[in-house]
């Protein structure tokens, strides 16, 4: 048990942080929503009503989609884009999908390689892109959820302001949808760019996101 906790500390730790933050968001979001309801002469809602509302769903989904977009782009972009000296990047001369030998696929697979890495053909082709593809699908689903829940929440606001509701296409082309979307995207892109560059020059002892403390600024793709 103790060993299982230690071996999965990262997923368990962040899973708990996620739940704590989501619960906190639910309470804070309910308070903010009820404040707006007072101004719009609407009814107050309970916590359960709020967490099943489109207002809560869109606030959650808009952040999820941007996080999955971040990882989707990061997984794909780092195949081709490098940052000399960054532990977040591979070496400059290794850009691209790399030879089968380095990737341990097909006849270069080892005894403990995943079955689909050994299989060759379409299975290896699919498995070779599965991480980015799943991130992309999760991004797409989250963004779709944002558009559906966002339309619902926005239409309720529009009716409260005595305006006509929007169709889904109308909402996807609206300022509200793109404001929610782009304000999340810009922060994700800034964070990726920042860690790629700052990690060239700064260190965090013991972190795999950092180079070893004494490693040269010029060394790329080394973690410690």
């Amino acid at each position: 048990m103790k060993r299982a906790l230690r071996d999965n500390g990262l997923s368990i730790g962040f899973g708990l942080l996620f739940l704590a933050a989501l619960i906190g968001q639910a309470f804070a979001g309910q308070a903010a929503y009820n404040d707006r309801q007072l101004a719009d002469a609407g009814a107050q809602v309970t916590l359960v009503q709020y967490v099943t509302s489109s207002d809560f769903a869109v606030d959650v989904a808009e952040n999820w989609q941007s996080e999955y977009l971040q990882f989707f782009l990061y997984v794909f972009a780092t195949v081709w884009l490098v940052q000399r000296g960054s532990p977040e990047s591979k070496r400059v001369e290794e850009t691209g999908t790399e030879p089968d030998r380095e990737q341990k696929v097909g006849r270069f697979a080892t005894a403990d390689s995943p079955a689909w890495a050994r299989a060759g053909g379409w299975r290896t082709a699919v498995f070779s892109r599965s991480l980015g593809a799943v991130m992309g699908v999760l991004f797409g689903l989250s963004w779709l959820a944002q558009s559906i829940a966002g339309r619902s929440a926005n239409n309720a606001e529009r009716l409260a302001q005595l305006q006509d509701p929007l169709t889904w296409l109308g909402y996807v082309g609206s300022a509200d949808f793109w404001n929610r979307t782009l304000q999340n995207w810009q922060s994700e892109f800034l964070a990726i760019g920042s860690i790629a560059v700052i990690s060239v020059y700064l260190r965090q002892r013991g972190s795999p996101e950092s180079k070893p403390v004494g490693e040269s600024h010029d060394t790329t793709e080394t973690s410690g």
């Binding site: 489109s54 769903a57 989904a61 699908v137 999760l138 689903l141 779709l144 959820a145 829940a149 619902s152």
Partner: peptide
């Protein structure tokens, strides 16, 4: 992934 799918479904349900 499961949570994202659930959210997509919930988004539709709420709407």
């Amino acid at each position: 992934g499961g949570l994202a799918c659930a959210l997509a479904v919930c988004g539709g349900a709420v709407a």
